[in-house]
Design a protein around this nucleic acid. Sequence first.
DNA 1: CGGACGATTGATCATTGTCAACCATCGTGG
DNA 2: CCACGATGGTTGACAATGATCAATCGTCCG
Lengths: 238, 238
Amino acid sequence: MTNRHRSPPRDPFPHFVETVLPAPSAPALAPPLRAIAQTVALEGGQTFRIERGADRFVFIASGAAKLVALASARREQVVAFHFAGDLLWIASPPAHDYLLAALAGTTLVTFPATAFISIVESDAAVMKALFERMQQALLRSREKSVSLGRKTAQERIAGFLATMADRIGTGDALGPQVDLPMSRRDIADSLGLTIETVSRQFSELRAAQLIETHGRSHVRVCNLAGLADRAGHARAPL
Amino acid sequence: MTNRHRSPPRDPFPHFVETVLPAPSAPALAPPLRAIAQTVALEGGQTFRIERGADRFVFIASGAAKLVALASARREQVVAFHFAGDLLWIASPPAHDYLLAALAGTTLVTFPATAFISIVESDAAVMKALFERMQQALLRSREKSVSLGRKTAQERIAGFLATMADRIGTGDALGPQVDLPMSRRDIADSLGLTIETVSRQFSELRAAQLIETHGRSHVRVCNLAGLADRAGHARAPL
DNA sequence: CGGACGATTGATCATTGTCAACCATCGTGG
DNA sequence: CCACGATGGTTGACAATGATCAATCGTCCG
């Protein structure tokens, strides 16, 4: 978790261009987008806040972040985790405030949403790519609703670990390994649980030989099938 | 809830066109879209199912529907309610099956997602409109995560009623009125509660003079501010 | 009017939250 | 390099919110 050396202040904008913009569209769109882009370097714990009514697109060039809704002073809901390469859309609707918080050193490229759209709207390929990212976000959010609404603590944790193994895990003969960039509190705030319950479920999964943990953040999934089993991802029989 | 007379089998496609397609785009896009459109008339309780990997866009021409994720045999999560005029996108991801169930007589116009997109992708206005509906869906889904993850039963019910008053309420001097098209079970499955808890919270809100109920589905909101209060929609102070 | 389904209310139980103490990890400074 | 301190994580005892089980009631339909 150390910033062992100030990360090179390389401009993250090219990374955004090659990750988000389809190659044929890039030359035409990159310059106007650069003009409205705002690059932000956050250290772990720092937040990026959205003003009311000023939706933004945020590209995560490096690092990891949580998108948080503030339900009230002592109640936070982590709406999504995002990692390098993700493009997300943030707005602050009437009900709650939202903010993006870095889980570690993180570099963002951000755009005002309306200006961004008016630049890319004429480019079918970009709009389509954007649309697909939106679909993915919606799908993940719906799956989160299932988890929060109808799953037990253990199912939520198992599902969370399986998802993280998939998204940020590193393959391995003995099963995927993950270095979780988020704290137990972040996990709890994401799954609608308390840190104590998260901790207990980690212990149970460890006792059941499904995972091994080393230190605070390292998890090895010993039995991915068993984990998916406990996640309650029951697909209805045809 | 009666089908007092077989609803006139008027073609719902024009309704889709004028609701979803911006006027200038309609003439060019309506014919090819009609060619891939599939109209479905559902009676209350009937379902529209998505095959694996065959995403669809669904326009609700009339009626009301719930988008349900099947967590397992006895556990359903209502991911969203949708009403006439809504356009939604449905996919069946690996984890759970999804289906759309009519809450009453409902007419749908549905399209295979990929074919739909390849037809409209070249039209910036339509893509933008589509994109905005997607943003709205994502926002609602995020708000639902907050509700499911960090709110008490009473806050969820209060928030639900406030939202319904906003979306399908009819104005009135004495406060908005709503005819809920969904059952207590649907509400429970949407809010991650049981029907008993839903019922008890309705009773409490009634006792607190915030709502009045007549019959199973009619609700009058006597005190919208008080309801919003109990919804825990705390916005962090600037 | 009667029957069936859905809604309400009550009694009890269990999962998870709360409060509290202890322990481990990691970063710092001696 | 090790010891220490602080932060974050784990574990335990207890309490509370909401689930479960059960009975009754109301509503809507034939």
